[in-house]
Design a binder for these strands. Structure first.
Length: 576
DNA sequence: GCCGTTTTCGGCCCGACTGTTTTCAGTCG
């Protein structure tokens, strides 16, 4: 997938363009093209093969950027970026990434103090040399030093699962603060983006200043970055950034639209308002000085001639066109989900017993839970089948005892070896009620080899679901490369499912690929990959990712009632 | 650099906060 790689280079080119003082609109065009590439569900190579006209048919990509993409695909670099980098120290890109330092400040720091990377920036700040520069007060110097410290400690982006947890805890505290009439977590967390940069809270209040003041005194707040009459920015002790935005209660809906974003979606909405002789800001939709919509999100979208677009779709990735044409998907909702199709018990590497898993699944209201213990961890060597049969008897007993509420599926997760064969005895695979196959080692193979590996596993008659397709892990492992279009198409043709995995550090496949999966028409299976009962609520994350992929309930396996799911499994096995 | 039922040239979202600006530039979301 070069899409992300080219997008990254275009963003750097945009930063460099700002740095050297070329037209800011050029930089914006580069960033817009980068965003478009990141949301494409097709590999850019495939489009480029159809010729330069196909590239230019993509919105935001014209003659010049199309040429740059072709050059990148041929040489692996953007010539313009290389040229600028030969004039500018490499490290200014990381200096510009520090919050509060933009292109102008970075250039000033370089030209006057020789700042060329984070280390020389730290030195310039500590030595006091930076105090002499316009715009760099001692106060700002302290702030920047603290930021450098925090950035050092924290990863720049936090996986959604962890961020949502922190955001919901903090939201409860926010709602208790004097003056807060209503509060909601917005931003990328509300859009269920797989990783987030900060937590954005919208707060409805009649008294913005004292309320913000009180919010910044919450014990969770470690350091205040900026504070005004309507907005405040702060950091938690682990470096996670928090933004508070106060809004008058009667402008709540417009505030939600503004703070939920995404930025690209908001800009499109504002352009749309302009085209209709209106103006959209965080307070509402305006005709001249008259506010014509502000109280609810529905009203704001309606004033722009659109149905309300669900937050996970607000990425400027075709949702405005779909809304305009009445083609918005009827998204999958959490209440559609009847059960979880990947979980592990202490029969393999899970923490909890089958019964503890069943009890939590029952508390979640599930009809079923697939216990997908790792086949190769079920007993040692020749003991596999014995352990498997013992586990089955325990599952049968629990299903009897609980009257099938929830019903536990006697399932397996099996490792796909490097050659695409499965690491489990055939007898076991065919006796299991449901089989997930997934890659657990030999990552990072060349694309074609990985493709063949996954296709071969998919062809195995016992395999029902391809688990965590790309195997990416936050902070640990990049996504595996493969010809996903072919793999999803083969899964569709075989009537098999591909998993959307909601385990917090996996969230696999990433959004654009998940959307390609949904578009392929293959069955989708939602799994939390829980290794403990307390992980099971992560289904929220899997559903969020599926929503970002535009999934509707129809092709999601987990929306089937128990008997329909068992019938689906039986039908597929008969086809073999 | 992109784009066009306002435009092939002249626009390009909009407002809050910081700093030192007595009216605005830089940065951010």
């Amino acid at each position: 997938m070069s899409n992300e790689a080219i997008a990254q280079q275009l963003r750097e080119l945009a930063d460099l363009t700002d740095y050297v003082g070329d037209s800011p609109f050029k930089a914006r065009a580069y960033r817009q093209a980068a965003h478009t590439l990141e949301t494409l569900t097709t590999p850019i190579e495939a489009i480029a093969e159809q010729g330069v006209d196909a590239l230019q048919a993509i919105p935001g990509i014209g003659e010049a950027i199309a040429e740059k993409i072709v050059a990148y695909l041929q040489t692996g670099v953007l010539p313009k970026r290389e040229q600028l980098l030969s004039q500018v120290p490499h490290g200014v890109l990381e200096v510009m990434a520090v919050p509060g330092i933009g292109a102008k400040t970075a250039k000033l720091l370089h030209d006057r103090l020789g700042v060329r990377d984070l280390e020389s920036l730290r030195h310039a700040l500590l030595s006091g040399a930076a105090d002499q520069l316009p715009g760099l007060s001692p106060h700002k110097r302290e702030r920047l030093l603290r930021l450098l410290e925090l950035q050092h400690k924290s990863q720049r982006r936090t996986p959604l699962g962890f961020a949502l947890q922190r955001g919901q805890d903090l939201l409860r505290a926010v709602q208790q603060v004097q003056g807060v009439q209503q509060a909601q977590l917005c931003g990328s967390a509300r859009r269920m983006q797989e990783d987030i940069g900060d937590l954005d809270f919208l707060v409805a209040t009649e008294l913005p200043e004292p309320t913000l003041e009180a919010l910044l005194k919450l014990p969770e707040i470690h350091a205040v970055y900026a504070q005004g009459a309507h907005r405040a920015q702060a950091f938690l002790s682990d470096g996670l950034q928090v933004d508070f935005r106060a809004t008058p209660p009667n402008h709540w809906g417009a505030g939600l639209v503004y703070l939920t974003g995404s930025k690209a979606h908001t800009i499109r909405l504002r352009q749309r308002a302009q085209q209709r002789g209106l103006k959209l800001n965080e307070y509402g939709v305006w005709r001249g000085d008259v506010c014509i919509a502000s109280e609810s999100e529905e009203a704001v979208y309606a004033a722009l001639g659109l149905p309300c677009i669900p937050p996970p779709l607000r990425e400027d990735a075709g949702e405005l066109e779909a809304a305009e044409q009445g083609r918005l998907p009827q998204l999958l909702q959490p209440q559609h989900v009847r059960g979880d199709l990947q979980s592990h018990s202490n029969w393999s590497d899970g923490f909890n017993t089958l019964e503890e898993m069943a009890q939590t699944a029952a508390a979640l209201g599930y009809d079923y839970l697939a216990i997908t213990d790792h086949a190769h961890l079920l007993g040692e060597g020749g003991e596999w089948m014995t352990a498997f049969e013992q586990r089955r008897r325990e599952i049968d007993a629990l299903n009897e005892q609980y009257g099938g509420r929830p019903y536990l599926l006697d399932a397996l997760e099996v490792n796909i070896r490097a050659d695409g064969s499965l690491d489990a005895p055939e007898a076991m695979l065919h006796r299991a009620q449901l089989v997930l196959a997934g890659v657990h080692d030999a990552h990072g193979m060349p694309r074609e080899q990985m493709t063949q590996r996954l296709l071969r596993a998919l062809e195995h008659p016992a395999v029902d679901i391809l688990a965590h397709p790309t195997c990416r892990r936050y902070g640990k492992r990049l996504a595996n490369d493969a010809d996903w279009e072919r793999i999803f198409e083969r899964a569709r043709a075989l009537g098999k499912a591909v998993e959307i995995n909601g385990y917090p550090t996996r969230m696999d496949p990433p959004t654009p690929l998940a959307r390609a999966l949904v578009e392929s028409g293959a069955w989708v299976s939602l799994g939390t990959d829980s290794h403990a009962a307390r992980d099971l609520p992560a289904m929220t994350l899997a559903v969020g990712l599926a929503q970002r992929a535009w999934a509707t309930p129809e092709r999601v396996l987990n929306t089937l009632a128990r008997d329909a799911l068992l019938q689906w499994l039986a039908d597929r096995r008969q086809q073999v």
